[in-house]
Design a protein around this nucleic acid. Structure first.
Lengths: 152, 152
DNA sequence: GTACATGCAAAGGCTTTGCTATCGA
DNA sequence: TCGATAGCAAAGCCTTTGCATGTAC
């Protein structure tokens, strides 16, 4: 399981780098570090998370560089941006396609559940409305098991 | 159907005004107009929408007043805030509790579908994760029937 | 009359943009 | 070499806040 996940992250890392090259973009050390955070780092980092982690290796790193690279990778369709109502943003380079999330409101951890009922809901939305559905965003908010233990 | 909706909007309007009074807040003409937009106006207005519509009757109306009143009504739990990834916000004073939305990416219309599969999905999330789920946000994005006709 | 609300302007927080030097291919 | 990129600072955008005036109760 762990091995699979690592392999998966590695292949996502390589895919993004390849796509960058294919589209004529240079692979700078800063860019590599950002892509690494999006795929290998702690799950679903924010721009600040990425910036803080990389700044240790690149003291001159600027937030603008992180922002610009995320815009670039988004334009390649290789990272999913999760904007929240409070204005915060989190990024997922491993599953850059729409999928449900479960978010802990205490520790901010984000989990990706497998929901068999998703297909059924999509069908229901299509039949209930006259919309052509192209995309979705499904978030559940609560308190994770760890935080329940820690703080009741 | 239409009658029911109108009655529903009216009762929502009255509920919010009553809650404001109950909590010691004054009912100013501007406040009334904002609550009216949240309940009787075109569905799911943005702050700008509310501001623009009210400015006709209150030329001195300021955006700050709209923002402050929305914060207040949110604190009473009487309006649902829908913040989107692009930073835009829309408000629903008629159904101030979490519910799924279907959003047209062209005309920005928002529809509230009735989804029988919602309960099933909630159960599945609970059993798939060790989270205690408190809240959710379910959005589907696509093109509405009207826009399909108009622009293909 | 008094506490709360409004309106204006200024300040904040996050993100984007302009410019110049630098660096990857 | 040469165009793309990084870094810095400034500008933008939406939202919040401070303060004086105005107003609901």
């Amino acid at each position: 399981m762990k091995r699979f996940q690592l392999a998966d992250h590695q292949s996502r890392f390589e895919t993004i780098i390849r796509k960058l090259r294919e589209n004529g973009h240079k692979v700078t050390p800063q860019r590599l570090a950002i892509v690494r955070q999006l795929t290998h780092g702690e799950g679903h980092p924010s721009v600040e998370d990425i910036y803080d982690r990389i700044k240790k290796d690149f003291p001159t790193m600027s937030l603008a560089t992180v922002y610009r690279n995320i815009v670039l990778i988004k334009s390649l369709g290789e990272v999913l941006e999760l904007g929240f109502a409070d204005g915060s943003n989190r990024y997922d380079g491993n599953k850059p396609y729409p999928h449900p999330h479960v978010i802990c409101i205490r520790c901010k951890k984000i989990v990706d559940p497998d929901l068999d009922s998703l297909d059924e809901m999509k069908n229901e939305v299509a039949s209930e409305t006259d919309f052509k559905i192209l995309n979705h965003r499904l978030d559940f908010f609560g308190i994770c098991g760890n935080c329940m233990k820690t703080e009741g």
